[in-house]
Amino acid sequence: MKIEHVAIWAKDIDKVCDFYRKYFNGEVQPLYHNPAKQFTSRFVTFEDGARLEVMHRPDVGTEAMFHVKRPQGECSAHTCMGIAEPQDVGHEVSQPFQAQHEQGQHLGYAHLSFSVGSKEEVDRLTQKMSDEGIQIVGQPRTTGDGYYESVVLDPEGNRVEVTV
Rank of each mutant, 00 (worst) to 15 (best):
S113P: 01
Y148V: 06
N158K: 12
D154L: 09
I134S: 00
I134C: 05
L52Y: 13
D14E: 14
G157I: 08
V93R: 07
P155K: 11
G82P: 06
K2I: 05
H91T: 06
G146P: 03
Q105H: 10
G157C: 11
V151M: 15
H5D: 09
D123Y: 00
Y148C: 09
H56F: 14
E85F: 01
S76L: 00
I83A: 11
G104E: 09
I8V: 15
S150D: 02
K2C: 04
F114N: 00
D88K: 14
Q127H: 12
R141K: 15
S113I: 00
Q87W: 12
T40V: 07
L112H: 12
S150V: 01
E53G: 03
M129E: 03
T163I: 12
P86D: 07
P30H: 05
T79D: 07
S118A: 06
V160L: 04
T40L: 07
N158F: 14
H5G: 09
S115Y: 08
I13K: 04
D18A: 14
E132G: 12
S94H: 05
K11Q: 09
Q139K: 13
V16Q: 07
G90M: 03
H67M: 13
K22F: 01
E63S: 14
Q100W: 11
V44S: 10
R51K: 15
M55N: 15
R57H: 10
P71V: 07
V162Q: 01
K69F: 07
R57G: 07
T40A: 11
V151G: 01
H5T: 10
E63Y: 08
G104V: 07
K2W: 04
D14K: 11
N34M: 09
H101I: 02
G133A: 11
G108C: 08
K119F: 02
V122E: 02
F43W: 08
E132R: 11
E92K: 08
P58V: 09
D59S: 14
C17R: 05
E120F: 00
P35N: 11
Q103Y: 04
D131N: 15
E53Y: 03
G104C: 12
G73E: 06
Q100L: 15
